[in-house]
Simulated assay, not measured.
Amino acid sequence: MPYLAMGPWLLLAAACSFGAAMGEPRGACNSPPHQWCRSRELARACQVEQLCAQKAAPQKFPPVSVELYYESLCPACRGFLSLQLFPTWVMLNEILNVTLVPYGNAQETKTEGKWHFDCQHGEEECQGNMMEACLIHLLEDVNLFFPVIFCMESGSQVVGNLLPCLKVYAPELSMDNVTACVKGDLGNQLMHQNAQRTEALKPQHQYVPWIVINGEHTEKLQAVAMEALFTLVCTLYKGELPSACQEKLLASPSPSPQNTCLRY
């Protein structure tokens, strides 16, 4: 079992970079920052043992839950994921649980025992949705798949970004494994599961991004999350706030565009 489910790896990276700047050797720390807390040995080699131990301490209060129902090529979805959700998760990782459900406004039909999908922004969006569903399934840990999906969604081409994003953020996962999932029965079933999960939303989604906070969706929560998710998470958390919330040393991410992709 991992020593710690990552924690805010950008902050750990900053801490280790500061140590290096002060002349402290990193030793055998050859892994990317988001993996530094995955074992005691690696944390020791990267000189972040104390930070990892602090983040691994049990919490008395449950983290804030944010579920994002989205589609890979929707501009509003890409804006929210890139400008609000991912930066907030990096800064408040220890008090925030994120669930990603790529499907959105797609529609499915079953022919000869196989599911077929019609996506709002065309076949490329279906491919992007399935790639991200496969990444979530194959990597399992949000600390591993979320950086890859952020890299894809924040770049110039979502589908075309997969290979370079894998090389940077998840080199342990081969492109062949992702391709096999996307083209095979596994990817088809994963998309069907996302379709079922999206259709089961109450209230039923009318647009994407569709944001569910602590199991609840309201237009007010949606509007606040789209504008200032960082502040919303700090406000909703019932336990002791991390320093990013308490001291407001880190500014909230830039507001996301307020448009949406309406269900058709």
Results as ranks from 00 to 15, higher is better:
Cys77Thr: 14
Cys52Met: 04
Gln54Val: 09
Trp115Arg: 07
Glu140Pro: 00
His205Pro: 12
Tyr69Gly: 00
Val148Cys: 07
Val159Gly: 05
Gln157Lys: 13
Cys165Pro: 10
Glu112Gly: 06
Val98Tyr: 07
Ala13Leu: 06
Ala133Ser: 15
Asn143Ser: 05
Asn105Phe: 08
Phe117Ser: 02
Ala170Tyr: 15
Glu67Trp: 11
Glu199Tyr: 07
Ala195Phe: 13
Ser243Trp: 13
Gly160Cys: 03
Val66Trp: 14
Val212Asp: 08
Tyr3Gln: 02
Val159Arg: 11
Gln196Arg: 12
Asn105Thr: 05
Pro147Thr: 09
Cys16Met: 02
Gln54Gly: 13
Leu92Cys: 11
Leu138Asp: 00
Ile95Glu: 09
Leu4His: 05
Gln54Arg: 11
Ala223Met: 11
Thr218Asn: 07
Lys114Met: 03
Leu166Gln: 06
His217Phe: 13
Thr88Tyr: 10
Lys55Leu: 05
Leu10Cys: 06
Arg197Cys: 03
Lys238Arg: 15
Pro102Met: 08
Trp36Ala: 00
Arg197Val: 04
Val64Leu: 14
Phe145Thr: 01
Val148Asn: 02
Ile211Gln: 14
Gln107Arg: 08
Pro62Thr: 05
Pro63Thr: 03
Ala195Gly: 00
Gly113Arg: 05
Met175Asn: 10
Gln120Trp: 10
His34Tyr: 11
Thr111Cys: 05
Tyr103Thr: 05
Leu221Arg: 06
Cys245Asn: 05
Glu153Tyr: 09
Phe145Cys: 02
Gly128Trp: 15
Glu227Pro: 03
Ala28Tyr: 12
Val101Gly: 07
Ala53Phe: 10
Tyr70Pro: 00
Gly79Trp: 10
Phe145Ile: 02
Leu73Lys: 10
Gly19Ala: 04
Trp36Tyr: 09
Val158Pro: 06
Met152His: 06
Cys234Trp: 12
